[in-house]
Amino acid sequence: MAAAAAAGAGPEMVRGQVFDVGPRYTNLSYIGEGAYGMVCSAYDNVNKVRVAIKKISPFEHQTYCQRTLREIKILLRFRHENIIGINDIIRAPTIEQMKDVYIVQDLMETDLYKLLKTQHLSNDHICYFLYQILRGLKYIHSANVLHRDLKPSNLLLNTTCDLKICDFGLARVADPDHDHTGFLTEYVATRWYRAPEIMLNSKGYTKSIDIWSVGCILAEMLSNRPIFPGKHYLDQLNHILGILGSPSQEDLNCIINLKARNYLLSLPHKNKVPWNRLFPNADSKALDLLDKMLTFNPHKRIEVEQALAHPYLEQYYDPSDEPIAEAPFKFDMELDDLPKEKLKELIFEETARFQPGYRS
């Protein structure tokens, strides 16, 4: 834990890192770190609560700039109880001085990944967590956004079992017609939660990839272990087919990539493993919904509104309290091709509203 900075004593240090967030945020305490930044909790002297502050230093890398800009653009436009918001952003007053960006968010005690390492969940908890994931996802999908990296560590939890989806750095506007060349190379989302079509096709992607990830998360809540822990690309596919069985001819016809289709045709026939054999203690309604989410063919996979209306979630289902976005989200430009200098300018502009004396 960093010592509390005395008023006016300059930035606090946390594990050798400068955290320049005073005077409003003090009493910093280390939480963890990701690929390009550290997260601390801090005391907000204005709202009198502890908050989470993520320090991001992305400006050396085009990919990190892209992810940072995506996350900020999306989260500043989203407003939903099951999606983490941005409360404040701290950065230098000029673009030349801006080396880091500090993002202030609600402090959540833990995440689903940490929880599943230590606790076996009751059916009631599984049901409530799944409902909140789908409630947040309904809003995301209504904005025409794909999260693309749903996994237990991106689901934040607090002691009252509130759940918030975080990390929109890989999110995209849904565009089933656009052929994202190089899709697989830039697709760094965790393999275990990846839909089979991501490994088999490169053309376009749809909201059904997020539903697949939610199915993987439900299976993990039922058993405290990942359902498809593939060691590499082909191993991942083999794990999936080992449980779902061989795809039907109709399902194979959806695979545009001939090499991928021929690979699947070359494999020995596998039978589907019954879900109640894998999860003998699970609620039968939970397994019915799991089956509809972990469907090989993305066109037959359940959609988020149908999933919310499934009998497993009937005690929570309330369409009048499951809000959607006001308007579909649009990125003005494809960020993939922009140089990091341009992305830095866009991050600077996007964060201006939090600067003292800002006038829109």
Rank of each mutant, 00 (worst) to 15 (best):
L163S: 09
P339I: 06
D88M: 01
F228H: 01
M333Q: 04
G22T: 08
R194Y: 12
Y317C: 13
E12W: 06
Y25N: 14
N271E: 11
M333K: 15
R225E: 04
G357D: 15
A286E: 02
I90N: 14
H180Y: 11
I83C: 02
A352C: 06
T185I: 09
R148E: 12
H80T: 02
P274Y: 05
L278E: 08
C166N: 02
M333Y: 08
E71V: 14
M199H: 13
D177L: 12
P328F: 09
P229K: 06
D251C: 04
W275P: 11
L150M: 14
K272R: 12
D291R: 10
K54S: 03
K48A: 10
F331A: 00
V21P: 04
H269S: 03
G85W: 00
D124A: 14
R15F: 13
L116I: 06
G182C: 10
L137F: 02
S284H: 07
R359W: 15
N224K: 14
K231D: 00
Q119T: 02
F59T: 00
I89R: 03
A307C: 00
P274W: 06
F348V: 13
S122G: 02
H180I: 13
I165F: 15
R172V: 06
D210T: 06
C254G: 05
L112E: 05
G37F: 11
Q119H: 13
A309L: 06
I133P: 02
Q97S: 04
L338W: 00
L287A: 06
N201P: 07
I133D: 07
A171M: 04
Y128H: 01
D179M: 11
P247M: 03
Y312E: 10
P339L: 13
D291Y: 15
V104I: 13
A42H: 05
I133Q: 02
K73W: 12
Y36R: 02
L252T: 05
K151V: 10
M199F: 10
E326Q: 10
M38D: 12
D251Y: 15
A6Y: 00
L237C: 06
P298S: 11
V18S: 01
C166T: 09
D175G: 12
F348G: 10
K231M: 14
K272N: 15
H232V: 02
L170D: 08
L163Y: 06
S284R: 07
K259T: 05
A307D: 11
E12I: 13
P339W: 10
A195N: 00
M38H: 12
N297H: 12
D124S: 09
H147N: 14
E345R: 02
A42F: 00
S57N: 02
D177K: 04
G169W: 02
D100T: 01
R148D: 10
E33T: 00
L116F: 10
V173T: 07
Y316P: 00
A52P: 03
D288W: 04
E197A: 10
L335P: 07
T295F: 02
S41R: 03
A35L: 06
L184R: 05
V51L: 03
F19A: 12
D100P: 03
R191V: 09
L130Q: 14
D332Q: 08
F183V: 14
T351L: 02
Y30T: 00
N276S: 12
H61Q: 13
M108F: 04
L137E: 06
K259E: 04
R191D: 07
D321A: 15
I256M: 12
V214R: 05
D20C: 05
K342L: 02
L234W: 09
N47R: 14
S41Y: 15
R225S: 15
H178A: 06
V14K: 07
Y316F: 15
F183A: 05
R148I: 13
L244S: 08
H61E: 01
H178M: 10
S202W: 12
M199D: 05
L258W: 06
V304P: 06
F59M: 04
H61P: 05
L137D: 10
L234M: 15
E334A: 00
Y131G: 02
R353P: 05
S284V: 10
G37N: 11
Q119A: 10
D100L: 02
T295V: 04
Y358F: 14
K138A: 09
W212K: 07
F329N: 02
F78E: 11
S202P: 11
L163G: 01
E96Y: 05
V273R: 01
T190A: 10
A42K: 01
N154L: 12
H310D: 02
T160W: 10
Y43C: 11
H239R: 00
K300R: 14
Q17D: 06
R91I: 02
V18K: 12
F183G: 10
E326Y: 03
Y36N: 15
D88E: 14
Q66M: 10
A260G: 05
Q236C: 09
D318W: 01
Y128S: 07
D321S: 04
D44M: 08
T190Q: 10
V39Q: 08
V46N: 00
Y312K: 09
P280R: 11
S266K: 00
G136W: 15
C40V: 04
D124I: 04
H125E: 12
F228L: 15
I74Y: 05
Y64A: 12
R277S: 15
G85S: 13
E186D: 13
D291C: 11
H120S: 04
P356Q: 05
Y233R: 09
I211A: 13
I90L: 02
Q249A: 08
Q62H: 15
R191A: 09
D124M: 08
R301W: 03
S41A: 08
E341M: 03
H178T: 10
I90G: 01
S122K: 08
I133V: 03
M38Y: 10
F168E: 06
L343C: 03
L252F: 03
C216H: 08
D149M: 07
N281V: 09
H299P: 07
P23W: 00
K207S: 13
G37L: 03
D336L: 05
E326T: 02
D100R: 01
H180T: 05
K73F: 13
W192M: 12
L335N: 10
E314T: 00
L265I: 02
I165T: 05
Y193S: 11
R194W: 09
L107N: 08
E12Y: 07
F354Q: 12
I74W: 07
S320W: 05
F168Q: 07
D111A: 15
H61Y: 08
K117Q: 11
D106F: 00
I126M: 12
L69H: 02
Q17M: 06
R148Y: 11
V18P: 08
E33K: 14
F78R: 09
Q62W: 05
E109R: 06
E220K: 14
L75T: 01
N47V: 11
A195E: 12
T110Y: 10
F279M: 09
D235K: 06
L278M: 12
K259S: 00
C127M: 13
F228G: 00
I227M: 04
P268M: 03
A309Y: 03
K285Y: 10
G37M: 06
T190Y: 05
D210L: 11
H120F: 05
N87D: 03
L244R: 00
E326F: 02
G22Q: 09
M13F: 00
E81K: 14
K231V: 01
A7N: 02
P323W: 00
A9Y: 04
D337R: 04
C127F: 14
A6S: 13
S266H: 03
D332H: 08
Q119V: 11
D20R: 04
C127Q: 10
D149I: 03
I198R: 10
D318K: 03
T185D: 11
P176N: 04
R194K: 14
V173I: 08
Y193I: 09
R135P: 02
P328V: 06
G34P: 08
R194V: 10
T26W: 11
Y64C: 09
V46D: 15
S142T: 13
P339C: 09
P229H: 15
L137Y: 09
G16E: 12
A309T: 14
G245D: 11
N87W: 01
S41E: 05
E186R: 05
L170H: 09
V304C: 09
V188L: 12
L308R: 00
I126D: 08
A307R: 03
K151Q: 14
L115R: 00
N158C: 11
D106C: 00
K203I: 15
P311N: 02
R79T: 04
Y30G: 01
H125C: 10
E341F: 02
N82F: 00
V173N: 07
A189D: 03
F296I: 15
L107Y: 10
A189V: 08
W192S: 13
F78H: 10
G22K: 10
R194S: 15
L163K: 01
F19P: 13
L200M: 14
V304A: 12
F183L: 15
L115N: 01
F296G: 03
L313H: 05
V101Y: 10
K342D: 05
T181I: 12
P323E: 05
L338E: 08
L28M: 14
L346P: 10
L200F: 08
N276I: 15
L287E: 10
S122I: 12
S246E: 00
G169Y: 01
L287G: 05
R24E: 08
V273L: 11
K340W: 02
E305W: 01
K207W: 09
